[in-house]
Design a protein around this nucleic acid. Structure first.
Lengths: 172, 172
DNA sequence: GACTCCTGGTTCAAGTTTTAAGCAATTACT
DNA sequence: AGTAATTGCTTAAAACTTGAACCAGGAGTC
């Protein structure tokens, strides 16, 4: 079948997206690197853990929530563990399992870094969006995520490595 | 001043964005790695060059257009040069300058890879967006880019390294 | 139980990115 | 012209990511 190219309108939107996401990731990474000594992803690891029951999550569940590979998470947690922000524990219900636990030190670090991070995100993104645009943004992004990882007929399948299938049992 | 936290609505939008951009970059990188042997950024380098007059651009101009650091571009071009997709030439008007030129081989590679790439982008993003959403997406992204790099009172300043100031003379 | 397959997590090597530092050419200033 | 500051680009070292390979534990089957 012949390629359906992007329309001029779509192409402009796509270019704008690519540019914006590059700039945004860069700005956020720098701010967090400066004020918290870690890149955005690592901060997000702490953020997700902080909201989990018991501040703990199994590696696979955490990777799935973050939409990253297990390998990438392994390295992130190893680094954060060296920093004392996270601790690894064995999983009681599955002896293969590992649970990442947010330490008190990690919690403190997160709380210290949060204001600056939120401020950056706010000024770069939300300060100039209307309420409707915020809603649109969410809708659009949910659609993209669904298209990529959604069950049913997969539109785009990034990799078998990304573990999106739900696991059976509970995670603790 | 006390932190202005994100509202629940904003937080949902932000999380959706972070997840979607991670999934999207991952999907695109894999597709291009598989079918063109290079990550998304490198493909974009070729794409920008292909549209420039004479298929050539000075390093700094290219880095500015791509919204990446010169250092990052240096490595990308070095790799692409090894692949034969790009060639470096001296800049006539400024002996410090380097011009990146898209080779015929690079052009062919780009043309071979484009359909698969467009298809991935289309299925992940545009196939499920309305025309208004496409327009909103562009507007939102332009706003973000403007907020980060815009002249005037800088809302977020990622780094002095990113060369956003216009240079004086022409680039060829 | 033995066999096979799958799952959870880590590890290795190779590739990419970052930050700071470096060098040469240009510009600005006097 | 002489000198300091700036610009264009590269490089070195450390950090991060990727993809495949790996190993131990769990699950299904007979």
């Amino acid at each position: 079948m012949t390629t359906r190219w992007l329309t001029a309108e779509e192409q402009r939107a796509w270019r704008a997206y690519v540019a914006a996401s590059l700039l945004l990731e860069d700005a956020i990474d720098r701010q967090l690197q400066r004020e918290a000594g870690m890149p955005h992803l690592y901060y997000t690891v702490l953020a997700f853990l902080s909201e989990a029951p018991g501040r703990r999550l199994r590696m696979t569940d955490l990777a799935e929530a973050l939409k990253i590979t297990r390998s990438r998470l392994t390295y992130a947690v190893t680094r954060l563990e060296k920093d004392g922000a996270v601790r690894r524990e064995e999983c009681a219900s599955d002896r293969r399992g590992t649970v990442a636990v947010l330490t008190d030190e990690g919690t403190a670090l997160l709380e210290r870094a949060a204001p600056g991070h939120v401020d950056t995100v706010r000024r770069a993104v939300f300060d100039h969006l209307t309420a409707e645009q915020v809603e649109q943004l969410e809708r659009i992004c949910l659609g993209v995520a669904e298209a990529i990882q959604g069950d049913g007929p997969p539109a785009v399948r990034p990799s078998d490595e990304l573990p999106w299938r739900r696991r059976s049992g509970p995670s603790g």
